[in-house]
Design a protein around this nucleic acid. Structure first.
Length: 484
RNA sequence: GGGCCGUUAGCUCAGUUGGCAGAGCACCUGACUUUUAAUCAGGGUGUCGCAGGUUCGAGACCUGCACGGCCUACCA
């Protein structure tokens, strides 16, 4: 760009290496406030730096809006014609988008705008690309996600979303830390991907000449730690699922899992509703949040619905009366549902839940006691081996917030359940599925009764920020590569 | 994977029945010392997503492809 050459020719380095400011724009505005209440001295010299968001040139003077990470402040350039020649030339070449530093004093203009009257300024980084349009902002979602930095510059509310995200995560950590949970880190690369039913990503370790899977859940390693004697552990981490991409699914996403020895799913339920309540108080200052046109209230206790009864209530089908997949499928077809003939009974019930139950659950609600077919890692209900002590939490009409159960700690029973799973998968020609034998070995040493919890952090943030798409709460969501 | 919709200037978008490619912002030139979507006068900066086809003539019509969105499917 010729402007850049001209600036260099004028003896100015368009990318100097350091610039020390005395105030952020926010601090400069606060300083002005102090000056006006008379609690500070007369002279208010400041050095601030940031990106030029607008310039209003008016002949001998000019106004500009300067934005930094803390906020923005107006700049006033006066007597431009009397600038030193090189400064005048540099000033003329300033564009919206340039990063500059200015020295001056703070004052308030006639119209009440906090302003730095500029005595001197320096170019800190020249912008060679035009910024998105100032009035409409950037709305092309493709560009917004691919060039998130532009989104953050052009759409100030986007920044707010990610600040909330950070606060949610910090509040969750605080909650668990205060309760004596130990935060741990477990392997992302695993010889077998267990703890969930999702299809994993496969990668290859060259030195070991061995395939590894990217983890699809945190579960099995955290429970090894319960065996090892850490009674309360959690991990907040990225997991990877090689499946469809949608407004609710990103191939990599952030999961919280916690495990507490000597607890069951009732304890976990109480902990989870308290956790979300406290997080909402700390992040939003309220237990209420608007989501998709509804007001959700996280104040405990949340309703607890028996899964079988909920399905019956909303779909009219009592799946207990249909003992095998074929019978249930036939009954579901009668209601006009299109049903995949491949699905086993557990998946059919899952479909009933997502079709009939989830959309009706607006307020945070526990759905309890799942059929055993759907939950290979959960402990059976006492006296009824067809059901397990498991709950899921839904809110906002279909957002799944949590999945938790009383952990199955009987190694023989666990081995049977794994084998059942493998049997079902045979014929699905999925090479990826393997049994984590080392986990079974760990269970044989004895795992105390344990309550476990899994929380999709991205979805929690969606609720807290009223975003209907998971891509709005992930800084760099996965998109297809653009072909040249 | 399937269906529908979209893709035009750096950005936000118009573009009539198939007949010279448009507006606002940004950018460039000039005027202006309290503006804040500054204003005023002038300037169009384009591979109309890509590749074919129909046509005297295609941004528009047809086919294929790419990318995106929504729905659907998949998904603990």
């Amino acid at each position: 760009m010729e402007k850049l050459a001209r600036i260099r020719a004028g003896g100015t380095d368009p990318y100097p290496r350091v610039y020390h400011r005395t105030h952020t724009t926010r601090q400069a505005v606060e300083l002005l406030g102090k000056k006006e209440t008379g609690s500070s001295s007369e002279e208010m010299p400041v050095i601030v730096a940031g990106r030029i968001m607008a310039i209003r040139r008016m002949g001998k003077s000019a106004f500009a809006d300067l934005r930094d990470g803390s906020g923005k402040i107006q700049l006033l350039f006066q007597d431009i014609k009397n600038f030193e020649k090189s400064q005048l030339a540099l000033f003329k070449d300033l564009d919206i988008g340039d990063i500059i530093g200015v020295e001056g004093d703070v004052l308030r203009t006639k119209s009440g705008e906090p302003t730095v009257r500029v005595n001197d300024f320096h170019l800190l980084a020249k912008s060679l690309q035009p910024l998105p349009e100032k009035w409409h902002g950037l709305s092309d979602v493709d560009v917004r996600y691919r060039q998130r930095y532009l989104d953050l510059i052009a759409n100030t509310e986007v920044k707010e979303t990610f600040l909330v995200r950070q606060k949610v995560i910090a509040a969750v950590r605080r909650f668990l830390d205060e309760r004596g949970f130990l935060e741990v880190e477990t392997p992302v690369l695993q010889p077998s991907a267990g703890g969930a039913l999702a299809r994993p990503f496969i990668t290859h370790h060259h030195a070991l000449d061995h395939d590894f899977y990217l983890r699809i859940a945190l579960e099995l390693h955290l429970k090894r730690l319960i065996v090892g004697g850490f009674d309360k552990v959690y991990e907040l981490g990225r997991i990877f699922r090689n499946e469809g991409v949608s407004t609710k699914h990103n191939p990599e996403f952030t999961m919280l899992e916690s495990y507490e020895a000597y607890a069951d799913y009732n304890d976990v339920m109480r902990m989870f509703e308290e956790m979300v309540y406290q997080v909402s108080q700390q992040v939003l200052g309220s237990s209420r949040v608007e989501f998709a046109g509804n007001i959700l209230d996280f104040e405990p206790p949340w309703p607890r619905l028996d899964l079988r009864r909920a399905v019956k209530q909303y779909s009219g089908i009592d799946f207990e009366q249909y003992a095998n997949a074929d019978a249930l499928r036939t009954r579901m077809r009668e209601t006009g549902m299109e049903v995949d003939p491949q699905k086993d009974r557990g998946r059919l019930i899952d479909e009933l839940i997502s079709t009939y139950v989830e959309p009706n659950i607006i307020q945070p609600t526990f759905l309890m006691d799942y059929p055993v077919e759907m939950s290979p890692l959960a402990k059976a209900k006492p006296g009824d081996s067809r059901y397990v002590e498991r709950f899921e939490v839904f809110a906002g009409g279909g957002i799944e917030l949590a999945n938790a159960f009383t952990e199955l700690n009987d190694p023989a029973e666990q081995r049977l359940r794994f084998q059942e799973q493998m049997k079902e998968r045979r014929g699905e020609d999925e090479e990826q599925w393997t049994i984590d034998r080392d986990y079974l070995l760990a269970l044989e040493y004895g795992m105390p009764p344990t309550g476990g919890l899994g929380v999709g952090i991205d979805r929690l943030v969606m609720l807290f920020t009223n975003k209907q798409s998971i891509r709005e709460v992930i800084l760099f969501p996965q998109l297809k590569e653009k072909n040249e």
